[in-house]
Amino acid sequence: MKTCLRYLLLTSVCLLLIPLHAQAQTYSTENGRAEFTSSVPLHEFTGVSDYLTGLINIEENLVDFFLDLETLKTGNGRRDRDMYRTLQTDDFPFAEFTGSLISSFDHNSTKQQNVQVTGEFTIHGVPNEMTIEGTLQRQGNELLLKANWVHDITDHEIEPPGILFYRVRDEMDVQIEARLNIREDE
């Protein structure tokens, strides 16, 4: 009986130690950079926000990001207000992505690694399944995330604003860069 209890105790202690180590692999940020470049005929404009918020939970394989769309600034207040109206930010204030890594990521390596995430991207209240490629690099207690992709706003039932042929392009180039810190509360 004593041997039995010893085995039970040993197994339990070993297993309980694993999640304690694993939960330390959650990284988060509240000031990542998100940038998009869009265009109308003969003109291109860029919107920037430094309020990209998100987390990457390595153990649970969760990637969860959101951006308050009214923090995007293009350098022209009138254009910003038109953009918020088009995106209906009063009703749908966030662009959100929730998904998981579908490529391997060696958390112990400090090299930049190409990764792929897949999940649900929601803007304008309309979700769309997406796979995005980017890079992750562990730098001490931080995780550096970079990604860029082409996003079609009509996938989210957003009507590109414009008049006749002078219309905002459906597709925009999106770039994000974030330095995620290890979460100390885990």
Binding site: Y51, T53, V63, D64, E70, T89, T98
Partner: peptide, 17 residues
């Protein structure tokens, strides 16, 4: 995968648009 972060406005006391 389910969202873990609570969606909160970045600037809660921003002016009404």
């Amino acid at each position: 995968a389910e969202a873990q972060l609570e969606r909160e406005r970045a600037i809660p006391d921003a002016p009404v648009s």
